[in-house]
Design a protein around this nucleic acid. Structure first.
Length: 488
RNA sequence: GGGGCUGUGGGGUAACCUGGUAUCCUGCUAGCUUCGGGAGCUAGUGAUCUGAGUUCAAAUCUCAGCAGCCCCA
């Protein structure tokens, strides 16, 4: 049969915006036609995957002693206003509820932009003694922020879906260990399971979470070379515990304030990274662990061959489902070529093709989405092979991503060199005066002149400038190496 | 933060400059023939973002609103 040549062919590295917009529509991930600025509809194919991301994350959080809770979406104004820096950072972006029906509320209510101020008044009630600590709670929810920057589905919107974990300890040391645990969880879920590499940075003082002592945030790259932030974890110190009176009486009878951390993996944004990191010119490439359908069976029928084929497909589906695979038989009245392309756009990891040829040989053809390879597999080996191939695919996807990512980490020692390198994207290490507040003018100047952001010092590498190197902006002796990049 | 552009059936578009009948592809529905990399034929279906203004007449010109996109810093 004569087939038409029609293919989704956009190179994500040379034209990422177009690639992204096309895939959002083509793979049915989101619909931007809701017509409220910054709000989009998340469609089933995306949500089914994101729910699995939630599950993977929640599993790790529960393994590390976190309990789930649901806190209200609305926060009384007086609670939101309790911590000065927090107010300064978040109040400009808050959506307010001021009326109920036609009645004006006596105290207006904030739609949570983040849940510290919803949770901590309750923490103050729950924590009385050291035996109430540590308190580790996570909250899977959406939050609302009136973003002024350009919005893009999953990457930045005014409503987004995330998890926030809020922990309280008796000592600073324990809370610092929590920050490290948060980083490990991110590594385990985002890199090991979803194949997205990143680097954790300690953010400069002028770019930390409003109200925190220190902020640590993971950054990865989009195909156009721009930086996108992944989860961040914050050492809150005692700023909030003092503002909200989260305190306990120690064994000597003295009042002590809790040491707090908060952690915020934005699931919708991590999803943006996953699809962008792995996708190709045929569409999505989903990591098997989150693919809503992991194996699609495409029966290839000839006239009269229908019945035995359908029976065999069902049999294979049931056998694989016994092993917990998510399997779908595509029995639509479409040609095989159409179905191949359709499921490739959707990023389904494995495809089983079966027609008369396979029936005769008691085999199937197994096609792999990431590499495009097709393999003939005997029916009796199928369950085993599917498992092996899924594992190999997950591994390949991470290796490919890591290779791509590390090739885009560079170094520069002058402003000119930095700009030259960042024009090609990636993140570039530079000598910099300081992460303390007096380094802010240099960072602002970089931002203003070149749209370059200082991301902070690498958490996993403690190397420092020799003493001879100078800050790329002010020329003073550099105290730190920071990474810089152009940010989403 | 600054600048530019756009809004036409479900999707992609033509007509817009120079006002007058809305084009094509795709999708969708029905039927028949098909099915190993986006099938064919036949018959149907479906659109000018919202509001105001100019005009005999507005998809087209003007203004406002809403929404989206891109670029620069």
């Amino acid at each position: 049969m004569q087939m038409k040549q029609r293919e989704f062919k956009i190179d994500k590295e040379t034209n990422f915006s177009e690639w992204y917009n096309t895939i959002i529509y083509g793979a049915e991930l989101a619909d931007i036609r809701y017509n409220v600025k910054g709000f989009v509809v998340f469609r089933p194919w995306a949500v089914a995957a994101m729910k699995r991301m939630y599950a993977a994350y929640e599993k790790e959080l529960e393994k590390t002693g976190h309990g789930p809770a649901w806190f209200p979406a609305l926060i009384p104004e007086k609670n939101l206003m309790k911590e000065a820096k927090h107010v300064e950072g978040f109040v400009p972006e808050v959506f307010w509820v001021e009326k109920a029906g036609e009645t004006k509320l006596e105290e207006r209510l904030a739609m949570r932009p983040t849940s510290e101020t919803a949770m901590y008044p309750m923490y103050a009630l729950w924590i009385q003694s050291a035996s109430d600590l540590p308190l580790k709670i996570y909250h899977s929810s959406q939050v609302w922020r009136h973003e002024t920057k350009a919005t893009k589905p999953f990457i930045r919107s005014r409503e987004f879906y995330w998890i926030e974990a809020h922990d309280v300890y008796a000592t600073r040391e324990e809370s610092e260990a929590q920050v490290r645990e948060d980083m490990q969880i991110a590594r385990k879920v985002i890199t090991q399971k979803l194949g997205v590499p990143f680097v954790f940075f300690q953010r400069p003082q002028w770019d930390k979470f409003p109200g925190a002592l220190h902020t640590f945030a993971a950054d990865t790259l989009m195909p156009d070379g721009k930086v996108i932030q992944q989860p961040s974890t914050h050492l809150l110190g005692q700023n909030f515990s003092k503002a909200f009176d989260i305190s306990f009486t120690d064994e000597k009878g003295n009042k002590q304030f809790g040491w707090q951390t908060c952690y915020g993996p934005a699931i919708s944004r991590i999803y943006a990274s996953v699809i962008s990191m792995h996708g190709d010119s045929k569409g999505l490439v989903l990591p098997p662990i989150i693919a809503p359908i992991q194996i699609v069976i495409v029966p290839i029928a000839r006239k009269g061959s229908g019945d035995p084929l359908v029976k065999k497909a069902l049999q294979i589906k049931e056998a694989l489902e016994q092993k917990d695979w998510r399997v779908h038989i595509d029995s639509r009245d479409k040609t095989p070529g159409f179905k191949f392309n359709d499921w490739e756009m959707k990023g389904v990891p494995m495809r089983i093709e079966m027609g008369e040829r396979e029936l005769e040989k008691l085999s199937v053809t197994l096609a792999l989405r990431d590499s495009g390879e097709k393999r003939t597999v005997l029916e009796k080996d199928l369950e085993k092979r599917v498992m092996q191939e899924a594992e190999a695919m997950t591994k390949r996807m991470l290796e490919k991503a890591e290779k791509w990512f590390t090739a885009r980490l560079n170094t520069a020692s002058t402003e000119k060199d930095l700009v030259k390198r960042l024009d090609k994207g990636g993140m570039v290490r530079i000598p910099f005066c300081t992460l303390e507040m007096n380094g802010m003018p240099c960072a602002e100047s970089l931002k203003k002149k070149h749209a370059i952001d200082v991301r902070g010092t690498r958490y996993d590498q403690k190397e420092k400038p020799s003493g001879k190197e100078t800050c790329v902006m002010c020329g003073k002796t550099a105290a730190v190496y920071v990474f810089a990049g152009r940010q989403y």
